[in-house]
């Protein structure tokens, strides 16, 4: 592999201090990256993976964008999706909880006024529908991300 970046200083995390295992970065011949905490074990006769030096953490200014895109590519591999899309799933769940907070507040206010039973019932229906849909979406996102992380782990171990 040809590395065009310039070594400046060792990566702090790579030194293995603070009780964290040192990370090892590997690259496949097809361009994929793999991150391992501790030396990775590869199956015999599979030389496609090779270690990439991780102690180069400060690329030349002109190459900064490449370094960022590599990190994002690694995150994309682990999460199975663009990290911004992963964030969207969390944002949607947060938004739904804010909606439910509003609904519960309004239900409480209407209940204090009395004679608003029908409206309270409709608002409860709305809350039920919104919560059900959000739970379904969150569960789907969770399952997809979990499967992707497990696949990344399995790839590390193989």
């Amino acid at each position: 592999m040809t590395n065009t970046t310039t070594a400046k200083r060792p990566c702090r995390a790579a030194s293995g201090d603070e009780g964290m295992p040192a990370p090892f970065l590997y690259q496949h011949e097809d361009g994929r990256y793999g991150l391992s905490f501790g030396p990775a074990r590869f199956a015999k006769g599979v030389p496609a993976w090779h270690r990439v030096p991780l102690d180069i953490v400060e690329p030349a200014p002109a190459e900064s964008n490449n370094a960022v895109s590599s990190l994002l590519a690694a995150a994309h591999i682990v999460f199975g999706d663009n990290p911004w899309n992963v964030l969207l799933a969390i944002d949607a769940a947060s938004q739904t909880l804010l909606w439910l907070e509003t609904l519960f507040f309004v239900i409480r206010e209407l209940n204090e006024r009395g004679n608003e039973k029908i409206q309270v019932r409709h608002l409860a229906d709305i809350g039920s529908y919104i919560a059900e849909r959000a739970a379904s979406n969150a569960e789907q996102s969770h399952d997809e991300i979990k499967a992707s992380i497990e696949a990344a782990e399995a790839r590390e171990e193989s």
Binding site: L98, E101, T102, F105, V106
Partner: peptide, 8 residues
Amino acid sequence: DLVNLLYM
């Protein structure tokens, strides 16, 4: 809350 109701 008004904004949230509008979104709903």
